[in-house]
């Protein structure tokens, strides 16, 4: 079985992004870029499945400019066998990404596709579900545990009411939540080795994904600030303050 893992290049988790003064976007000039943290968890899970002897190959895929090859190389250093860059100059919205992934799935025939549950830049949380819809296959979103039984996969999902368990037939799309695993660190020799692993580039146009339904972002703004609060010295003052405000 092949596993396909989606990788998105995003502003690093630790960077606090700022909106440009003219409202045209966020300032990402010179900031550190990384693999979307949820995608890193997706890749870690794929590698563990392979290491457990349940998969033969782990392929990582990213849609973007040549810069996303940095993240694909990191993914190869983590242990992926090969990488695919879907080359495009425009920022893809989820439906276009799902269409591009589907075309690659038709070529590669993976038994499992694992993606992060959302990207920490646009916070859309759509691509995996959309891919499952277009592919007409099961989706198991927000996964915190995967158990294989033959051609079936039992997935524990983190839902608002607790932990839900569903069973899906393969092939399927899984999107992963935080608690599924802790991704490994990349070792230096593996970074050297990763340079020799295959990285194929496919132009987006060749895949026929459409940008027609793109939504138009008309304005970026900084979030409204909360009014500055007060400090109290002790529990008695705190309780009094809450009573004064009608909250107790």
């Amino acid at each position: 079985m092949k596993i396909l893992v989606g990788i998105k290049r995003v502003v690093d988790y630790n960077v606090r992004v700022r909106v440009l003064p003219d409202g045209s976007g966020v300032d990402i000039d010179g900031v550190k870029m990384s693999i979307n943290p949820f995608d890193e968890i997706a890749l870690e899970e794929a590698l563990r499945i392979k290491e457990a002897g349940k998969a033969a190959e782990v392929i990582v895929i990213s849609c973007g400019t040549d810069e996303c090859q940095q993240q694909l190389r990191t993914a190869l250093a983590m242990g992926a066998d090969r990488a695919i860059q879907v080359k495009t100059g425009s920022a893809l919205q989820p439906l276009s990404t799902a269409q591009a992934l589907l075309r690659v799935i038709e070529r590669e025939q993976p038994g499992l596709v694992i993606l992060g549950k959302q990207a920490i830049d646009d916070d859309n949380s759509q691509t995996g579900q959309m891919l499952a819809a277009l592919w007409n296959r099961p989706q198991a979103t927000f996964a915190s545990k995967l158990v294989f039984e033959g051609e079936k996969l039992t997935v524990t999902r983190e839902v608002d009411a607790g932990l839900e368990t569903i069973e899906v037939d393969l092939p399927a799309v899984v999107t992963v939540d935080l608690r599924l695993n802790e991704p490994r660190f990349v070792k230096l020799p593996d970074i050297m080795k990763a340079k020799r692993k295959p990285l194929d580039v496919i132009p987006l146009e060749e895949l026929g994904a459409s940008l027609a339904s793109n939504l138009d972002i008309t304005r970026y703004a900084a979030p409204p600030l909360r009014q500055k609060g007060i400090r109290v010295e002790n529990a008695a003052q705190l309780v009094q303050e809450l009573k004064n405000r009608g909250l107790l």
Binding site: V17, R18, A221
Partner: peptide, 11 residues
């Protein structure tokens, strides 16, 4: 977007 660090208008 960005965990609430930016707000966008989308059409």
């Amino acid at each position: 977007i960005y965990a609430g660090n930016a707000i966008i208008d989308v059409k």
